[in-house]
Structures are given as structure tokens and as C-alpha cells.
Amino acid sequence: MEHIELFFKSIFIDNMIFATFLGMCSYLAVSKRVATAVGLGAAVIFVLAVTVPLNWLLNEYILKDGALVWLGPEYASYDLSFLTFILFIATIATMVQLVEIVVEKFSPGLYNALGIFLPLIAVNCAILGGSLFMQAREIPTLGLALNYGISSGIGWFLAILAIAAIREKIRYSNVPAPLRGLGITFIITGLMAIGFMSFGGMLTGGDEGAEASEIGAPVMGVETEQLQNESNNTDKTISVLDNQTLTKE
């Protein structure tokens, strides 16, 4: 259950592109054609699926405050968390370069398809973002970290696939010349992000939602009634203002 929740949450609600705007540069630069977009998207899924669990291990056994305790109790007081950035980045860059070398050696076909995208990935902030989110959100197990890496990669893949498809079609539309290409892509991405914001409501389903409706939003009618009672004996202008806000809603 935990896995399924995290999976869908990372794809839709916390979508790397539309919710956190990570990896925007390669998303905009490499989305002119569907075929290349698929190549880059697949590479991102793969690299995220490898680096997030790897960095999870690093974080758990080296970086966290007191993580070195497995070396012996006298190491318990070490806190290496200031090395987080540098170690995560080094892992990612090393992995990318390693994958490039291995793929080049054993599968030249795949290398030709994927090759040019791999170096691009090292500078894709979605990859580092994935590892940093994993650390900040304190993902508890290695399995969940792997899940998180794959699913946020899929979210990124879907986003770049969608925009590439739109850009292929929009070539036949009559877009004002100065807006063609990059300009219209920015605006379409903005609109898509607004659309994706509606997934945010999915989060409040389930237990949390029940609690929220019980504690949070009071029934509108009751609130109005209270306000009107108050307006009789307290500051008039305020309750008038409150009622205005109410009717607007």
C-alpha cells in the first residue's frame, strides 16, 4: 500500500516538471521531437532508478548524523551531512559516466540511441533533486527509495513525452512568429502545470482528508450564522467585510 501510494504520488502529485519544476532546462531543450524525448526520458528513468537507491545507502550509512555507528560505537558522534551535496553529485556524475562507458562497450546500438543524452543527464537538476528529496523526506527503506527513483523518473518521462507530442503538432498551427518555438513552449508548459495542480487534491483523500474535514473547514452555513450573531454586538465593519468575502466564495 505504501509502495502504491508513493508510486502514484511521485508520478502525478509531486511531478518533477509540473510541481517542482526540476529538470526544466533539458525538458525545454530536448522536446522538439517525440523520438528524442523518449530517449532522454528513458535515460532519466534509468539514472534516477540507480542513483536514488545508491544515494539512499550513502545517506544511511555515511552521511546521516551518527550514521557511521556501524564502524563501531566510537564513531557514533560523527556528522558528515555537510558532505551531502558533493557526495550526491559525485555519485550521479560517476554513475552517468560509468553507464556511458559500459553501454558504449557492450551495446553500440543502444549507445547510439541513448549516447548523446547521457552527459546531458549529469547536469539535469531533476536527478540531484530526486536524491535530495529522498533525503529531506526521510524515505525509510531501500525498496521505497528505488520505487521513488523509478516513479519520479516516470513522471518526468510522461511530462517530456506530452510536451514533445504537443510541439510536433503545434508546428502545423498558426502561432505568431516571435512566439514560435521556445516562447509557446513556455506558455504551454505553464498551462500544463496549472492543469497538474489539480492532482494536488488527490493527496487529501483517505485518512488525512477525513481528519481535515472534521477539524479544518467548518460548514459554511454555521460560519455565516456565527458571523451574523457577532455582527450584532461587535465591530460592524469587520463582519461586513467577512460577509463580503463569504459571498464572493
Binding site: P178, L179, G183, T189, G190, A193, M197
Partner: peptide
């Protein structure tokens, strides 16, 4: 205030620049 509007504002800046 929301981030998607930044995309649209940049889109408009690009438009103006390219005109």
C-alpha cells in the same frame, strides 16, 4: 504567485524580445 505563471511571464518576455 504560483510558479506556472512564471513560465507564462517568461514566455511573454521571449515574445517581446523576438518581436
Amino acid at each position: 504567485v504560483l510558479s506556472p505563471m512564471a513560465l507564462i511571464v517568461i514566455g511573454i518576455i521571449i515574445w517581446v524580445q523576438r518581436i
